[in-house]
């Protein structure tokens, strides 16, 4: 026992938490990349995903198979919700000033949170999330729980999948084309509306997965559960360089590790303060983020 042990233990915890932030940060960064909108309702998609998983696991019990089913259902539901939100709330504002869409995003967020409170199936009170019994794998003095391993492995798999889609599929290439120059994309015959919807669907599906993983690690679900992880993932996306996919991943892990290290070595009450302190620091020192490019605004 000592400093090194504590440090390594917190690193393990941080990597696990960070992979959840990374999944969520990807949605922010992809949506920003393609429509230049900070989708403040993104954290609430995490909550909806967690509830999607909750219903599946509550109905069928917790087994590896139902867990995968929960992930798939949550992701599918949230992908659909993401598309519906984009089509109904953001698309009509596409040519409006950006601040209008931003305010709308905040409105959508409030709507989802309070909508969830009044829906009978969800309701205002926290619910216990059905999850695996914790099994610890001690490596030396460090404890790694199987939930941490699941969180990490699922996140990494999804990140690989996303990287593959974005870099090697026709849709992914079209996503990058649209985010670089929407008008030129139209001139290639790319159905820009459909690419934007697809991007929202991808981001929302990742948020759903993040929600189920988050609820497995911290087994409680309630309508406001997405707010704080959402904000932290937003900070992660800015830290990594908003618009950059690898940046969101790096930023997510840094945020997770910074948070657990603060909790372990400084004070758990300061953890959130440090997280948002990081945001202020980046905005002052390097607003484009770690992997972001310094792009001047196009007129």
């Amino acid at each position: 026992m000592g400093f090194l042990h504590e440090f390594l233990q917190q690193m393990v915890n941080g990597i696990s938490l960070g992979s959840i932030y990374a999944l969520l940060a990807l949605g922010y960064t992809m949506v920003y990349g393609i429509v230049k909108l900070i989708n403040f309702a993104h954290g609430d998609i995490l909550m909806l995903g967690a509830f999607g998983g909750f219903f599946v696991l509550a109905a069928y019990g917790v087994t590896p198979l139902t867990f995968i089913l929960a992930l798939l259902v949550g992701m599918l539901v949230c992908a659909t919700v993401g598309i519906v939100i984009e089509k109904t709330c953001y698309k009509p504002l596409r040519s409006a000033p950006r601040i209008n869409a931003l305010i709308t995003a905040i409105g959508v967020s409030i709507f989802i949170e309070n909508g969830a409170r009044v829906v009978k199936a969800i309701g205002p009170n926290p619910k216990q999330f059905p999850t695996f019994k914790t099994v610890n794998f001690p490596i030396g003095d460090i404890n790694i729980s199987q939930i941490q391993i699941i969180v990490f492995v699922v996140s990494i798999l999804l990140m690989f999948l996303l990287t593959y889609i974005v870099n090697y599929t026709k849709l992914g290439k079209a996503m990058r084309a649209v985010s670089f120059d929407r008008q030129a994309a139209y001139l290639m015959g790319i159905n820009v509306d459909w690419i934007i919807s697809f991007t929202f669907a991808l981001g929302s599906a990742l948020a759903a997965a993040a929600g189920i993983l988050f609820a497995s690690a911290y087994p409680q679900v309630e309508p406001y559960m997405g707010i704080i992880p959402g904000l932290k993932a937003f900070v992660a996306a800015v830290l990594g360089g908003i618009g950059s996919i690898p940046g969101a991943m790096v930023g997510g892990f840094i945020m997770g590790i910074a948070e657990t290290l603060t909790k372990g070595f400084i004070s758990s009450q300061l953890a959130d303060a440090i997280a948002f302190g990081i945001l202020i620091l980046i905005l002052v020192v390097k607003p484009s983020g770690i992997l972001g490019k310094n792009v001047s605004e196009k007129v």
Partner: peptide, 26 residues
């Protein structure tokens, strides 16, 4: 009916090949 826009407007973040693939998108 296709256009080569003013200022070229190639996708600078994509490779040459990927740009051609986007041209063949339809």
């Amino acid at each position: 009916l296709a256009q080569v826009p003013e200022g070229r407007r190639i996708f600078a973040n994509l490779t040459v090949m990927e740009n051609l693939e986007m041209g063949a998108y339809i």
